[in-house]
Nucleic acid binder design. Structure first.
Lengths: 210, 210, 210, 210
DNA sequence: CATGAATGAGAGTTCATTCAT
DNA sequence: GATGAATGAACTCTCATTCAT
C-alpha cells in the first residue's frame, strides 16, 4: 500500500531513506579509513569521496566539511565506548575490578575496531596520530569522577586524580596500540598487564609466558 | 692574533654564513609554531613561509619539503633528549633510580621546550599529534634494552619488556602533557608521581598536597 | 520514433556531452595553435589554457599533461593520414603510381590541415619542430614494407630500404613545407616534383612554368 | 714581470682571459648537450648552468639568455659547415661531383659532431628536433645559388630551384640521421646513396651489400 | 669577475565548492 | 536527491635574474 503510489519514481519512500542512510554510512566509513591512512589534517574532502563510490557533489548533501564528518565519527565512537565504560564501573564491586574492567573494556573496543585503529599505525616514519579527541577522552573523564569517589572513600590514596587519569589514558592507548600491532597478545593479556602495573607497579607485573 | 681583526676576505663570508644560519633557524622556528597551530598534516609549506619574512623560493634553499623540516626539528629534539637519557641510565645505581631518573630527565627536557610542546595541545577539536617519531622513540628503545638487562639481572620480574616500554612511553607523554598544561605541577612532582606509580602501583602514589 | 522528440531525461545529458566535446575540441585547437607559435617544448599547460576561455582546472578534466594533448593531436592526424596512404598503396598498379600516389596523398592531407602545419614554421629563430612522431612515422613504416615488397618483386633495385624510407620522409616533409609556404604551388605540382625526383633524379625534374 | 704586481690575486692577466674563454666554451658545450637532451624549447638556463660547474650568476657574465647561447652555437656550427660547403662547390668540376661533394661534406660534419646530434634522437616518444635553424639552412642557401647557376648553364633542367633545395635538405637531414643511428653505414655509403638518388632516381640506387 | 642565496613571478596540479542537468 | 564538470583559489616547486660578498 504505502509502496503503491506516493513515490512517482520506482523507489518507494522507504527505499529513499534507506539509500540516504547508506550513503551517510558510506561516507563515514570511508572517512574513518582515510583519516587513519593520511592523518586527519592531511585528508581532503576529495580523499573521502574518492574512497566512496558517490559523486563529489553528493558529499555536501550529508556534511558541510570534513570537520563535520570527523565530529560525527567521534560521536559514534564515544557512543560505543562510553556506555560500556560506565556500565563497567557501576558493576565493579571494588577498585581493583574497576580498573581491570576499564582496561578490559577499552581493549575490547579497540580490538573490535582494530581495522580502523590498525591502519593508523602504518604511516611509517610519520607522525602518529591518535584518536584521543576530546569526545573520546570524555569517556575517561567519567572515570576520573570515579577515581575521585574512590579517593573519598579511602580506597585510594589521596593522590592527584588528574595525573592518575593521564597515566591511565597513556597506558591504555600505548599498550592498546602494541596489542594491535602484535599477534601474540590477547585482549585479556593486555588488560592483565595494565591492571597489574596499576595495582602493584612493575614488581607485580605478570611473568612472560616465555 | 689572526682572530683579532676583520680580514676583508673573511668577514663577508662570515656574514653570508650567518645569514644562512639565521634563515634556517627562522624556518625551523616558524615551522614549530605552525605545526603546533594547524597540526602537522594540515600545515603547508606556504604556511611555514608565511610565518617567516622570507620569500617563498627561499624555503627550498634549506629544505625540500615540510617532511624534511619536521625531520630536522625532531633530530634536534632527539639530540637534546637522548644523550641525557643515556647518561642518566648509566649513572643509575639501581632500578628505582633508573626509572625515576628517566622520568625526571624526560620531564625536564619537555619543560625546557615547553613553548613548542605546549602549543601543540591547543588544537581544540583536532587530533593530537605527538612528537614521538622514530627518532624520539629510539631514545626510549635504549631504555628497553636496559629494561631487558634489569630482567636478566633479576631486578625486575621476567615480564613483557615491550609492553613495559609502551606503558613507560604512554605515562611519560601523557603525564608530561598535563604537567605543561597545569601551572601547579613541578617537574619533580610529575616525576615523583610517575615513578611511584611504576614502582608500587596506585597504592604507592604520593599524597596530593591538598 | 524514439529519436523524434526531446526526452526530458535525455536532452540534458546530451547537452552535457556536447559541452564536453566542445571543451575537448577547444583545448585541442588551442594547443595546435600554441604549439605552433611557441614550439612544443616551450609551451606550457597554462599557455594552452590561456588560449581557451576555460578555467585552469578544467584542462585536467580532459588531459593529464601537454604530452597527452600532443598525443591526442597526433593520433587524430595519423588517423586521417594512414588509412588514406594504405588505400593508395593497395590501389597502385605499379611502383611509379605507388610513389606518386603516396606523395600526392601526403601533400593533400597537409594542405587540408594547412592552418595547423603552416603556423608551425613561423617560429623565427627557433628550432623547427616536426609532427613526425612515432604515430605519423608508423604510417611511413607501412610504406617501407611496400618498398621491401617491391624489391622482392624486382620492381626496385635491391637497395637499402631504410635509407629509401628516410629519403622519402625527408622529401615529403620538406617539400610539403615549402608548398604550404608558397602560394604558387599546387598539391599536384609538389607531388609531381617529388615523384619525378624519385623516379629519375634531377634530370627528370619537371620544367618550371617560368 | 707582468706576473709580479698588476694582478692582486695569484692569476696573471693572461690567465684571466684564458679562464674567460674556458668558461664561455664550457657554457656552449653544456648547452649543446642539454639542448640535444631536452629539446631547445624545454631547456632552461638553469639546466645549462647545472651541466657546468660554474655558479648560476656567472652565466650572465657571458650570455643574456638561452637564446643568445643558441645563437652562438649556430654561428659556430655555420662557421664550420659553410666554408667547407663553399669550398666543395668551387672545387666541383661538374654538377654530379657538386652534389656528391655537398652530401659528403654534410655527412662528414654531422658525423664529426655525432655526439651532439646523436643525443638528439634519444628522446623517445617525443618530438624530434632538428638543428636546421635559419643559420644552418643559410649554408644550403648558397647551394641554391649554385643550383640556379647550373640551371642557367643548362647543366640542370630549368626546374623549381626552391623545391630542389628543399628536397636536398630533407634528404640530407633524414638520411644523415639514419646514418648516425645505424652502425653499419659509413659516411661514404650514405653520401653515395643520396647522390645516386638525386642523379638517377630510385632505379640508380646502389645495391645493398646484402 | 665568480659566487650562490634571495627573490617573487609563474609553472603544474589539486582542491572545495557550485550548479546545470 | 545524485551527478560530475566547471571554476578559480591555493598549493608545491622551479625559474630567471639580481646583487651582496
Amino acid at each position: 500500500m504505502t509502496e503503491k503510489e506516493t513515490t512517482p519514481a520506482k523507489a518507494p519512500r522507504r527505499k529513499r531513506e534507506e539509500t540516504k542512510a547508506e550513503n551517510r554510512a558510506a561516507i563515514l566509513d570511508a572517512a574513518r579509513v582515510v583519516f587513519a591512512e593520511l592523518g586527519y589534517g592531511a585528508t581532503t574532502v576529495r580523499d573521502i569521496i574518492r574512497a566512496t563510490n558517490l559523486a563529489s557533489g553528493t558529499f555536501y548533501n550529508y556534511f558541510k566539511s570534513k570537520e563535520e564528518v570527523f565530529q560525527a565519527i567521534n560521536d559514534a565512537t564515544a557512543l560505543r565506548i562510553r556506555p560500556r565504560l560506565r556500565a563497567e564501573r557501576i558493576r565493579a564491586p571494588d577498585f581493583e575490578s574497576f580498573i581491570s574492567g576499564t582496561f578490559r573494556t577499552f581493549f575490547d573496543v579497540i580490538y573490535f575496531d582494530r581495522h580502523t585503529f590498525a591502519t593508523m599505525r602504518t604511516q611509517a616514519h610519520q607522525v602518529r596520530v591518535r584518536f584521543d579527541t576530546p569526545e573520546v577522552i570524555a569517556g575517561f573523564d567519567e572515570l576520573r569522577a570515579d577515581i575521585e569517589l574512590a579517593i573519598e572513600k579511602g580506597v585510594l590514596p589521596r593522590t592527584d586524580s588528574d595525573l592518575l587519569m593521564a597515566a591511565f589514558v597513556g597506558v591504555a592507548f600505548e599498550v592498546g596500540e602494541r596489542m594491535l600491532q602484535r599477534e601474540d597478545l590477547s585482549v585479556a593479556q593486555a588488560a592483565d598487564f595494565a591492571t597489574k602495573l596499576f595495582l602493584g607497579g612493575v614488581q607485580a607485573l605478570p611473568r612472560a609466558p616465555n
